[in-house]
């Protein structure tokens, strides 16, 4: 239960620093909030890699091609980055830019997911009785 306290502590400290800095220097306030987000992401990366090890063991038992679950990891990474940058954009005030980044992320994820979809279709057509 320790990591959740650290994350909350970092978030609160960042909010306070942003509030203190906003009247004095508004550009530094935004940078402090970006750095706070980065620190929290760093803490979370450790757990994400733990999850992936478990996934790898599960996937290795199935005889699916290993490229599939590598693709899933890539898609999760894209989602991770897109959410990070979109929230920074909306933080600095230009929400429309953040939405465009989100749209771009969705399109990229769809493009990356196409091989998985075709793979599933092939499996399904094989199952159907000829």
């Amino acid at each position: 239960m320790d990591p959740i306290y650290r994350i909350i502590a970092v978030a609160l400290v960042t909010c306070l620093a942003t509030i203190i800095l906003k009247p004095v220097r508004s550009d530094f306030a935004i940078m402090v909030s970006v750095v706070g987000g980065i620190i929290i992401l760093f803490m979370l990366v450790r757990y994400v890699s733990g999850i992936f090890d478990v996934f790898m063991q599960i996937f290795s038992t199935t005889n699916l091609s290993s490229s599939l679950y590598k693709l899933v990891f890539k898609i999760i990474a894209v989602g991770y980055l897109i959410e990070f940058s979109a929230s920074i954009c909306s933080d600095t005030g230009n929400a429309s830019l953040g939405d465009k980044v989100l749209l771009g992320g969705k399109i990229i994820i769809l493009v990356m997911a196409l091989p998985i979809i075709t793979n599933i279709l092939n499996i399904v057509t094989e199952l159907l009785p000829k």
């Binding site: 400290v13 306030a29 803490m43």
Partner: peptide, 18 residues
């Protein structure tokens, strides 16, 4: 990765303003 970076940036901000 620890909290001191946030304090460093906040300190730089205040110092430059002053």
């Amino acid at each position: 990765m620890s909290v001191d970076i946030i304090f460093k940036i906040a300190a730089i901000g205040i110092i430059t303003a002053v």
